[in-house]
Design a protein around this nucleic acid. Structure first.
Lengths: 123, 123
DNA sequence: TTGATAGTTCAATAAGCATTGAACATAAGG
DNA sequence: CCTTATGTTCAATGCTTATTGAACTATCAA
C-alpha cells in the first residue's frame, strides 16, 4: 500500500481513455479542482476531494485518472498527493486540457463542479 | 422511420455527454471522417461509414452522436445525411472540437481513424 | 504501545454500454 | 407492382462501469 503506483509514460497516453476519464462528472470535478488549485500548490491530497464522493469511490476514480495519464500520484507518509500532468498532456494533445477546463468553467454551476469542502474551508 | 429525429438545442448540449461520445473509437472515427469531408460537402450519409461497423451498430452510434448534440441528421428519401454541429459546439465549448480533432489527427494511425470504404473508394 | 488518521482492497450490486442478427419500414427505379 | 437499396427497430448477449460498505494496511503522534 506504500509504494508509488504505476503511471503511463507520456507516449502511452491515449486520447479515447483521456476523453472517457473526463466524461465522468466526478472525475471532471477532480481535474477541475486540481487545475483551480494549481497556481497555489499544484498538489492536492485525496482528502481534499472528500466532498465529491466516498473515500473508496474516490480511490477508484483516482486510479482511472492515473491510469489514463491525466494525473500523477506521489506518496508521502499516509498521504497521496496528486497533480495534473499538464506538460505531458499538452505535448500529446495540444490545447485539449485547456479547452476542456474552460468549457467546464463555463458550465461550473450546471456541472456542480465546486464541491463542499473545497478551497473555501469552513471557519 | 421517415421523420427527422429530435436534436438537442445548442444550450442543451452537455460537456460530459459530448466527451463520452467522443471517447468511443467508432464515434470518434465518425466525427473525424465528418470533419475531414467538411471542406468538400459538409454532409455524409450512413453508408459512408459502413467500413467502421455493421449497419445497426452504426445506427446506434449515430443516435448517440445526435443525442449529445455533436451532429445533425437530415432525412432525404431513403438516406440520412449527417453533418457536424460545428457552430453550436464552438459556441458552447470554444476550441474543444478543434483540439479533439487535432489530437485525433496526430494519432490517426494509432486510432485506426481511416477506415476502408472511406473517401478513397475501390475502383 | 495505543489510538487516530489517511487511504486502499475486496466483494457485491445494479445499471449502462456496445455489439449482433433478424425482422421491419420506406423510398426509388425498373 | 415488384424489387432493390438504405437505414431503423427490437431483443438478446456479454462486458464494463460506478457505487457501497466492511475489513484492512500503513503512518504519525501522544
Amino acid at each position: 500500500m506504500s509504494r508509488t503506483p504505476p503511471h503511463p509514460t507520456r507516449e502511452q497516453i491515449e486520447l479515447p481513455l483521456v476523453l472517457d476519464c473526463l466524461s465522468d462528472p466526478i472525475r471532471l470535478a477532480i481535474v477541475y479542482q486540481l487545475a483551480q488549485q494549481e497556481r497555489v500548490s499544484s498538489e492536492l491530497c485525496c482528502g481534499d476531494f472528500n466532498g465529491l464522493s466516498g473515500k473508496s469511490n474516490l480511490t477508484y476514480h483516482f486510479a482511472k485518472l492515473r491510469d489514463c495519464g491525466l494525473m500523477q500520484t506521489r506518496v508521502a507518509g499516509t498521504n497521496r498527493f496528486m497533480r495534473l500532468r499538464r506538460e505531458d498532456l499538452e505535448a500529446r494533445f495540444p490545447g485539449l486540457l485547456d479547452a476542456v477546463l474552460k468549457s467546464a468553467a463555463k458550465d461550473a454551476d450546471r456541472l456542480q463542479l465546486v464541491a463542499e469542502g473545497d478551497v473555501v474551508e469552513p471557519d
